[in-house]
Design a protein around this nucleic acid. Structure first.
Lengths: 231, 231
DNA sequence: GCCCAAGTTTGTTGTAGAGCAATGTCGTGG
DNA sequence: CCACGACATTGCTCTACAACAAACTTGGGC
């Protein structure tokens, strides 16, 4: 068990404005856990017993079809809750959470969701707001998939990734966790081949810079143009 | 103003188990309204001031892209709440609600959401459950769009429609509101031409029976096969 | 009953992008 | 340090489906 600093939580939306003692209680009840890369925190269909907070690292939330196709539903960044099926009164997790890199999570039994919500007004509010935003994003994705070409969708996806998980580097903004062409294709509903071709082409034009498992955007503005018009 | 029967609400999930006087209060505070076909109940971007319950008819929830493409995000059946942006703490509606046929709605100012939730435990629970289910469905759609062919997607969409809005008729199960090829194409991310061709082909095979603005499924089982394998 | 607009059907053509296959490169573990 | 597996690139082919075009059908309004 790691020593947990109170300051870890006080800045996060769901726990903002909690009193010092309340934060301490929340931390006392939490179970911390470290994960290596590419491990499942929980699996689709498992009984939903706990909800999680990601303190460090990055999580991919993934669904698998009956034919074995896998698609990435959502990315979780540090400071966000995930596995909140409980809050939506589901009894099993609707998707699998995989670590994209080394992760540190806190988790609590579902029963505590209700306790937190009762004891600390603002907890539920903040989280339902998050759910609302995620709902908006996934609807955006449906619209994107229905109306845009592969090239535009990949551009949109990259832009979203650098917005939510971008880290400034010398030549642009990098996605700060490992991501393969395959992963990108699973987010856009295409094949790794097509993604590879697009990244190669964009690299030649100086729009992106990618290496194995890493992608950085060097010219976000051009990418926006592509995402809007397909050039 | 129509006389509102208490029995209208007592059977609906969000209000189930309310006391008789509670139901009466809910009804007293509600504003009923009738709509003709193809009218907007509220519009994307409008300030979200009220939330709605559909008593009769069918509602399409629609998003419009900057280029004017329109896609149907969700269908609302009688007895369901919609426009619950308030519950997700959004200040504008994220989509437009259009009537598919003649509709009767009740609506309440957003402030009452919180009152209902406080006064009547079970109201919030029931509704967040609904949100969770809708989230699951829209994620399913993303997966569908990412992995399935047009033929399969149209089949899936028809099956979902007859499940949620099906009415038994002599030769099968009909979608009990007007729906055009164009509408179906907006739900599946294709063109009305392709939908028309598919319906014609399926009609020849005796799988569906469609007329102008009406679609019925005569052989759901075959449609399931198509949705799964593409046949 | 007739007209018109909205909805539908059907044909043709062009192309985005999937599918397949072969080769190249990186980095990790023995 | 080497070998192997995982990841990536690239070329070729082929098809599903969008895009365009044009005629046909239906039903509601005058």
């Amino acid at each position: 068990m790691n020593k947990l600093d109170e300051s870890l939580l006080t800045s996060l939306p769901p726990f903002r404005n909690f009193s010092k003692t309340q934060i301490r209680t929340v931390l006392d009840l939490a179970t911390p856990k470290r994960f290596g890369q590419e491990l499942a925190v929980f699996t689709e269909g498992d009984p939903a017993k706990r909800f999680y907070l990601l303190l460090d690292g990055h999580i991919r939330v993934v669904r698998t079809t009956p034919n074995g196709d896998q698609i990435i539903v959502l990315h979780i960044a540090p400071g966000q809750l995930f596995g909140i099926a409980a809050a939506m009164r589901r009894d099993t997790y609707p998707a699998t959470a995989m670590t994209a890199d080394e992760c540190l999570t806190l988790s609590w039994p579902n029963a505590l969701w209700h306790k937190f919500a009762e004891d600390y007004p603002g907890f539920a509010t903040e989280n339902y707001k998050t759910v609302g935003e995620r709902m908006g994003e996934v609807n955006n994705r449906v619209v994107e998939m229905a109306t845009q070409h592969v090239e535009q969708r990949v551009a949109c996806t990259l832009l979203r990734l650098i917005n939510q998980n971008g880290k400034k580097v010398e030549n642009g903004i990098a996605i700060d966790f490992p991501i393969t062409r395959q992963n990108l294709s699973e987010m856009t509903g295409t094949t790794l081949h097509t993604v590879s071709r697009l990244l190669s082409a964009w690299q030649k034009e100086g729009i992106v810079a990618s290496t194995r498992k890493r992608v950085a955007v060097t010219d976000p503005h051009r990418l926006v143009l592509i995402s809007e018009a397909g050039i």
